[in-house]
Structures are given as structure tokens and as C-alpha cells.
Computed example of a mutant assay.
Amino acid sequence: MPRFPQLAGVATAALALGALAAAPVPGPGPTLSHPRIVAHFDFAAGQTPENIALEPDGSADLTFAFARQVANVTRHGDTRILATLPAEAHPNTPIIQAAIVLGIARAHDGTLYVNYATGTSWTGIWRIAPDGSRPVQIARLPKNGLPNGLALDERRGVLYAADSVLGTVWRVPQEGGRPVAWARGTALDPVPGGSGFGVNGIKVHHDAVWVSNTDRGTLLRIPVRPDGSAGRIETRATGLDGIDDFGFVGRRGDTVLAALNTDSEVALVRPDGSHTIVLTQREGLSNPTSVAVRDRLVYVPSAAYFTMKDPNLLLAHLNQHHGR
């Protein structure tokens, strides 16, 4: 969830956002233990990990937003660059003013899809083949938008992109093609006079598309109707100030771990909407941007957008596998 035109402008953007405070609520749920930083990245080189997809071997594919790169990071911290998106000589990305790589999704065959925002015709969804060939743009999205989170529904053969500026969830065929404005509404929009970031993180879960809205601090559920259209937007949790992307705990239930970017926290969000802070800056978080969960292992990338210190990847153990 980058929010500044240049790396040097982080402090200004943070002040513009204002002071945000999380509101933890006590209650039952899984706990996390043994948090540890497994990889440190280079902030000055633009290695700001924005989003995450997991490989079958447990390694993580991360988008380095301002480096325009996708990297693979093992659970031991070994890092290699998989792809670099083409440089844009004259970027005009809304809010950011720089070319950035944002959301990432992985298909079962190893193909990666990423959102690339430039403020030009290159804004859209790009495909990275497993053979290491050059990234290819498969869908153009509005140049005045900011495609942020990205989710893949292979069963339906579609990608969903959350546009933070235009308050829109775009739907695109997995093979590429013309985007359709799948969902719109006030619940997806930024707040007037806020940070400018509305709908942000996105996941496909239980015949629905779940999204976060950063400005509104909400977690939302949008049912997918039998014909593929969007149902009514449902608010599932509020008070999640600075929420970025998120991950589900288990496949059956609706328990979520959400990255709260500005306060450097991760919140456990229960199906009833209550939430508790389970990771903080004390464990090494530095403006976390997303969360991924695989069995009993939790992955949290931090981009250090506001702290400007120690972008990293944190791993922690999930002690109780709730969410059924």
C-alpha cells in the first residue's frame, strides 16, 4: 500500500494521513508464536515488499513495489529476482507518481500475475510465465486508476483487481482481455479528504470476493452470484485503521489475519467482526502490507513505507488452527 510520490516523501504522506489507532478487542482465536524476520531488504533500492503469493515449497513470491520487481524468498531468507517490469520514462501514477508493482497472484501451473501501475497505457495486469520469459501485459486498466490487490479464481478463470483510487473491483479473464467493472459503490471508494486509498486488499473465498478499504478501515464481502456477477456488498468488520491486504486462517471459516500498515500491526479478525492485535512493531513489523497463511505458518511482508527502516519478511507459527 504505497502512499507517497517518491521514497523521500514518506514522512509528508504519513502526516497527511493523520494519526491512526487500532482498537483491539479481546476474544478467542488462534495465537501466533515464534515470530522471526527471515529476510531483510534494501529500502533505498526500492525493495519494498507490497504483496505476496506462496509457492508449493513454502517459499514466497513478493512484489518489490518501487523496484518494479518480483522476487522469490525462501523460508531461510535466500532471495532471487524472478522478473522486472519495464521502466516507464514518464510515470504519472495517481497519488504515487512513480511506476510500481502491486498485487500478485499465482496459478497452479506456476504462472504469476501482477498489477503494474504507471499512469500510462502500461497500467494493468501482467503475466509472468514459469519459464522466466519477459513479463507480458494481458489487460489494460484505466491509467487514472491504481490497481492494488489482485486475486485469481481459477475455477471461474478470472482475475479480480482492486482499484484503490477509482473504488472499483475489475474482473478480467485469466487469459487476458477487456476488463469489466465488476463491483462499484461507496463502500469501495476512498473517503473524501482521506489518504486517497479505498478498496485495497482482495481475496477469493467461499464463493465471494473479500476486500479491504484502507480509508474506511473495513473488511468487506462481495458474493459472487451463479452468473458471475457481483452481489450486494457486505461489511464484515470495521475499526481496522490502516488496513492493507489480508489472508484467511484455514479454508473453511472466515477468520482473517489483516496487515494494519500505518501502525505496524497484524490483527486477527474474527467472523463476528471483532479483532485483536497479534503482531506489532516489537516483533519486527515495519508497515506490513499483506499476509499469507499456509497450514500453521504465517508470512507477513513489511514495506517500511513510513518508518523507512528495515523492509522485511516475517514468519510466525499459528498455534491454533481455528477458522472452521
Rank of each mutant, 00 (worst) to 15 (best):
A11R: 12
P311S: 09
H321L: 15
E175N: 09
S212W: 05
T276W: 00
L260R: 09
T93H: 08
N287K: 07
H205N: 02
V165E: 11
G124K: 09
P190M: 11
P173I: 07
L318Y: 06
A71T: 03
R134I: 03
S212P: 02
A208K: 02
L220C: 05
T214G: 02
G228E: 02
R155Q: 14
Y160E: 06
L17K: 08
S290I: 00
P56N: 12
T238K: 12
G239C: 04
R184D: 05
G176S: 11
L20C: 02
E154K: 02
N213V: 08
S286Q: 15
R251C: 02
G18K: 03
K203C: 00
V266N: 01
D295R: 15
T79Y: 00
D227T: 13
A303N: 13
G46N: 07
T118E: 09
D78F: 07
R324F: 10
L62F: 10
H34Q: 14
S302C: 09
A16Q: 13
G176F: 12
P271M: 11
D109Q: 04
A13D: 02
N51K: 09
K203G: 00
D244N: 14
I233N: 06
G119R: 10
H40L: 01
A98I: 00
I233A: 05
G284Q: 10
M308L: 12
P135H: 04
P135V: 03
E265K: 13
V249H: 00
Q6G: 07
L313A: 01
A208Q: 01
S274A: 15
V38F: 11
R225N: 15
A258C: 03
S195P: 08
L62I: 10
D42N: 15
S274K: 07
I222S: 06
L314F: 06
A60T: 11
I81D: 00
T262D: 12
G9P: 00
G250H: 07
P94V: 05
P86F: 01
P179W: 14
Q47L: 00
A267Q: 04
T307S: 15
Y299H: 06
D61W: 11
G253C: 08
S302Q: 06
S164N: 10
I95D: 05
G110T: 12
T12R: 13
P2V: 15
D254C: 00
T118I: 04
A45S: 12
G58S: 11
R282S: 13
P26K: 14
P135S: 04
R68S: 13
V293L: 08
Q137P: 01
G239P: 12
V209E: 09
V136G: 00
A162L: 05
L85S: 05
Q97H: 15
V169K: 06
G242D: 03
R221I: 07
V158W: 04
G247H: 06
S133Q: 14
T235Q: 15
F64P: 04
R140I: 04
